[in-house]
Design a protein around this nucleic acid. Sequence first.
DNA 1: ATAGTTAATGACTGGTAAGTCAGCAAGGTT
DNA 2: AACCTTGCTGACTTACCAGTCATTAACTAT
Lengths: 202, 202
Amino acid sequence: MAAPRYRRRKEDRPQEITEAAFSVFAEKGYASARLDEVARRAGVSKGLLYLYFNTKEEIFKAVIKSVVIRRVDALLDAVDTTELPSEEFIRGPLLKFMQGVPGSPVAIVIRLLISEGQRHPDLVDYYWDNVVSKGLAAIGGFIERGVARGEFRETAVSELPQLVIAPMMLSMIWRILFTKRSLDTDKLMETQIEMILAYIKA
Amino acid sequence: MAAPRYRRRKEDRPQEITEAAFSVFAEKGYASARLDEVARRAGVSKGLLYLYFNTKEEIFKAVIKSVVIRRVDALLDAVDTTELPSEEFIRGPLLKFMQGVPGSPVAIVIRLLISEGQRHPDLVDYYWDNVVSKGLAAIGGFIERGVARGEFRETAVSELPQLVIAPMMLSMIWRILFTKRSLDTDKLMETQIEMILAYIKA
DNA sequence: ATAGTTAATGACTGGTAAGTCAGCAAGGTT
DNA sequence: AACCTTGCTGACTTACCAGTCATTAACTAT
């Protein structure tokens, strides 16, 4: 007896589709991504996509959200529960976290958002609410905690946690555009951290 | 006698077309931009586009190049000819230049390159050669000059001029994605400059 | 004026890809 | 085994848009 031509796996399909879609969007961007290609990589027919999602845009949003949902909480928890002095936490776990971002799926999401954000403002809001605002608040709050403890002095950095992540952003863009040209992105971020610490230390 | 339906203006057309195309690409991105719309905004027929350019891609490249060609040289000249001490030049003209970038067409070009760069590597090379490598070399060389003069000490910053422009990159991305959320991008860049100067001053 | 040159038009074509749907078959039910 | 439900298929439809080209008309030269 022949193997069945397909298996019914209702539970697994959505994730398989979003994973395939992520890889296609990552390579092609939203507009140039072909749903036929998504279906092919997911090992299903194109029609099946439309049983789980209504439009290409809906697939896109599901992809973004599926990537965002993971990860961020790890950092937030660490910030809340760490026993380390502020300076050591910043030099250690925070720096390591930042250094991991440019090579992670988050970088691809950022690129997709930069490209398509204007036409999907609700997605941008979602990303803001779940990643950016939380992340910045965590870093900012952490610095303020250091100030309250007398470890740091009061500087503009308290209100500009973006300074901490700026080299991370540049590293992401660099990798997207200038893979060929070498740049020690780890050292870039490390140096920024050293500079900030030297600047704010009491 | 009736006004003519159109005027023949061979000299002006290419620029008019690239300006119209820039505005459409800025709003829609490359893939979603419609050449009918470009023609409409340029006040010409679609067929005319193809008398001056062979493909949509060629128009895109002309747009990028037309924006890049301007501007950069101003900074480079200033770097070469300034009489100011390094620290004052960095605090003054260099900071002002950087603060102007996120609101300029350069920011839109960056967005287009982030979106489309993977499929137009020659454009990325062009941008690298004419903007990024020159700009970074100028900043890096300027810092090294300060070191040579004894104004600055030797630090990792000499090999990482990207640190200077990182907040500028973040500011561009911020404006693209999070226009609604306020951020004092001028102060962000200013603080970074202060921090770097404090860090590298002899 | 007249003829010649070429900038410019706009209806058309061909290819492409999102989205549809009638039928099929996997797997459960009795 | 016969029947039913529904996950799944893939050929099809429809709309759109980059790129074409036969035609028109603005300008030039004589």
